[in-house]
Structure formats: C-alpha cells, structure tokens
Computed example of a mutant assay.
Amino acid sequence: MFVVPLPLPPFSRIEKLYMPRIRRYERALVRMHKELENLFAEQDLKVTIKYRVKSLKNLYDKLCRRLSSLPAGTRHIIPTDLMGMRIVCPFLSDIDTAARLIETKFSVTEKEQKGADLGFKEFGYESLHFLIRCPDTIRDKEKLSPDTVIEIQVRTLLQDAWAEVEHRLIYKSEFSPLDEPLKRRLAALNANLTLSDIMFQEIRDYQETLHDQLRQRRHAFWNKLNVLEDSPFSMEEEEKSDRQEGPVPRNNDERLLEALLAHNEGDLERAVEIYSVILENELRRDLRSIVYVHRGMAYFTKDDLAAAERDFSQSIGEDPENSKGYLYLGLVKAVQQEYRAAFDNFDQALIHDPFSQDALLERAKLFHKIGDIVSCSSDCRRILDINPGNKKAQELLEQV
C-alpha cells in the first residue's frame, strides 16, 4: 500500500517515496496482463488489454486536486489507481462477459458503473470499474503489500475513444459559463457514440442469430441426405412446426432470417414461400445464387429432388463460381445414382473451392461406392491434410 501523509509533502519527498516502487508495479502488471490474456483466450473473448503505472507527475497532480475534497481531520491519502488496466471490447455484450470472468477469477473489492447516473443532457464516458486485490502469486513475486490493489476498467472501443478525448478536453480543463454551446456539442457527440455502440451490438446479434440458423439448416440438410442415401425409396416426412404463419417480413434481411427460422423448424412450405418472395426482388446475382441454394435445400428436405436440382442449377447460372451450388447439385445427382454427373459437379466445386472438405468427402464416398479405393483414399488424405480432426474422413479411410 502506498500511503501519502498529510499535510501533503513536497514533490521531492513524494518522489523518494514513490519511485522505488514503480519498477515492481510495472513487473506486476506484465504478469497480470498475461493472466488476463490467458483467461479471455480460454473463453475465445477477443479484447485489447492496456496497462500503465501512474506516473509521478500525474500522481502528484491528482493528490493536489483531491486535497480540497477531503474531510477535516484526514491524516493521509491512499491512492488506489497506481496500477491500472483497461480491457477494451468490440461490443457491449463483451463487457458483461469480461466482467463475469473478472469477478469469477479475482477478489473484487469494489465495482462501479461510471456514467450510469448521467442524465440524457449530460456528457461523460460510461465504463465499468473494478478494484481487485493483486493476486497472491504476483504480489509475493514482486514483494508488494498485502493490500495492493489493481484498478481494471472495462469498456467498448467507442467508450474508450470517448474517454481518451474527454480526458484531454474536459478533465484537464476548466469550463466557463460561456461554454454551454461546447457542452451541447460534446453531449451530442457522446450520444452518437453511445447509439453507435448499440447499433453495432444489434448488428452483431442479428449476424449471430443468422449464422446460428444457417448452421441448424445445414445440419438438417445433411441429416436428410443420410436418410435419402440409406433409403431412397422410403422418405421420412419432416416434422412440422406449430409456429403461426404471419405476413412475410418487409425487407430482405428480415425475410431471410424468417425463412431460415421456418426452414429449421420444419415448416418447409413457409420457408419456400419466403425464399420465393426474396427472389422476386431486385438482388445482385451472387445474392440470388445464395438464395437459390437455400430454397434448393428446402426442396431437397421436402423430397422434391426435381425442384432442388432446378434451384441448384439456377444458383450456378447466377454465379458460376458458387462452389456450394456445384456441391449440392452433385449430391442430388449422387442420390439419383447419376454418378458421372455427380463427379463432374464435385470436381467443379473443388475447382472453385479446393479446400472444401464437404466436396472432397462426398467425392470420396462416391469413389468408395463405385469401388475406386485409390481415389477414395487420396481424397480422404487430402481432407486430413486440411483438417486432421475430420472424423468422417478418418473413418472412411479406415474402412478402405
């Protein structure tokens, strides 16, 4: 603990007290940085971690400013932000994740949401502040006091940008009564940054929902393919969803998400309906190609192989470089036992995406089916060169 006696000693005295400690603080923060890095990496949380030991000049300036606010009879000051760390997150939701990890891993002595009490006409940065006890391993290594604390701030990129600017424009200056227009401009800027944070989070939430639906839809497609390959003449009917049909959403982003939701819930008629509405609109050809792939997958799951084949072919027509169109058209041809056409499409898929594990695996399975063990083994080994953990390729290679 660094205790400053009152009345405040001269700068030279503070220097003698403080400077011998700085190197130990710096080494402690380097160790703490590594601990936080490992903690966040385990949760795949992408953040930027900054750290600093308070400079002697900044410390003395802060002590001078605090003197006027101290109650009568105070005998000493204990600075708590000598060691500071800042965790800068891309999105608002990352702040909650980082905070949960900090509270789980470290001994928190204080937690404060800065800026939470500001009115809508006020300006100031929002930031989550923690005071934590310096971990025992670090404290003992650097011979620090048992009461040593580290301040950790958690904020978004935009909150961090605002804090940097605010520190220079506001914290280190005095406003006069004539500065009201400037205050309003700063308040408007802060509001824009706050709104931008919210919008970035909404975009991220939408993308994550969309990607989750895409993963589910893809999983359902491959499950259906297994059924078709096992028993091409005895199709299992998809389970229908109880979700109420409603009006088709107005914009294409909403339509695509609604179509994927219906698709994943087994409401294939609704999915096809919405995909068809999207295709009636003006779209770039590469986007039309993607939607045709989605609708073709829905038709495939409905057991309408002729419609699925048309859509996958149309997808290639809209975008001849769409490897997924060739892959799925090859799958339809393989199910229909048109093996030469299936091989041609798998080959085309690999021309446009040489690292497609799906195309390599389906071609390998087809080689295995026709008895070409050498080519089957070769494709399996190519997959395992790309991804040694591909279990399906490993199992097929063991079979042959």
Results as ranks from 00 to 15, higher is better:
residue 279 L to R: 05
residue 321 E to S: 13
residue 296 G to S: 09
residue 341 A to L: 08
residue 288 R to N: 08
residue 275 Y to E: 04
residue 350 L to A: 05
residue 354 P to T: 01
residue 266 G to L: 14
residue 331 L to H: 14
residue 274 I to K: 07
residue 277 V to K: 03
residue 335 V to C: 04
residue 261 L to M: 10
residue 309 E to C: 05
residue 355 F to G: 05
residue 291 V to Y: 08
residue 274 I to A: 02
residue 293 V to P: 03
residue 268 L to N: 08
residue 345 N to Y: 01
residue 291 V to I: 15
residue 337 Q to D: 12
residue 323 S to L: 03
residue 350 L to W: 02
residue 300 F to N: 04
residue 293 V to S: 02
residue 295 R to T: 06
residue 287 L to G: 05
residue 286 D to Q: 15
residue 339 Y to D: 05
residue 280 E to G: 11
residue 259 A to P: 00
residue 351 I to H: 11
residue 324 K to M: 10
residue 267 D to I: 07
residue 313 S to I: 12
residue 274 I to P: 04
residue 286 D to N: 15
residue 303 D to E: 12
residue 276 S to E: 02
residue 302 K to V: 09
residue 270 R to I: 00
residue 341 A to N: 07
residue 259 A to R: 03
residue 286 D to P: 04
residue 286 D to A: 15
residue 319 D to V: 09
residue 327 L to M: 06
residue 285 R to P: 00
residue 324 K to R: 14
residue 281 N to W: 00
residue 262 A to N: 04
residue 275 Y to T: 01
residue 345 N to F: 06
residue 291 V to A: 11
residue 351 I to M: 13
residue 331 L to P: 09
residue 318 E to S: 01
residue 335 V to T: 13
residue 344 D to V: 06
residue 320 P to N: 15
residue 323 S to M: 07
residue 285 R to N: 09
residue 316 I to E: 05
residue 266 G to Q: 13
residue 294 H to P: 01
residue 315 S to R: 04
residue 273 E to R: 01
residue 267 D to V: 05
residue 353 D to L: 11
residue 311 D to A: 11
residue 304 D to M: 02
residue 341 A to M: 03
residue 346 F to C: 06
residue 330 G to N: 07
residue 340 R to Y: 06
residue 296 G to A: 10
residue 257 L to W: 08
residue 308 A to Q: 02
residue 282 E to M: 02
residue 306 A to T: 15
residue 278 I to V: 10
residue 300 F to W: 15
residue 340 R to N: 07
residue 356 S to K: 03
residue 328 Y to H: 12
residue 289 S to W: 03
residue 292 Y to N: 03
residue 258 E to A: 05
residue 314 Q to L: 15
residue 299 Y to F: 14
residue 318 E to P: 00
residue 266 G to Y: 15
residue 352 H to F: 15
residue 306 A to R: 08
residue 271 A to T: 03
residue 303 D to G: 11
residue 260 L to N: 02
residue 344 D to N: 03
residue 263 H to K: 02
residue 265 E to D: 14
residue 340 R to G: 01
residue 267 D to G: 02
residue 344 D to M: 08
residue 284 R to Q: 15
residue 333 K to F: 14
residue 319 D to E: 10
residue 265 E to M: 13
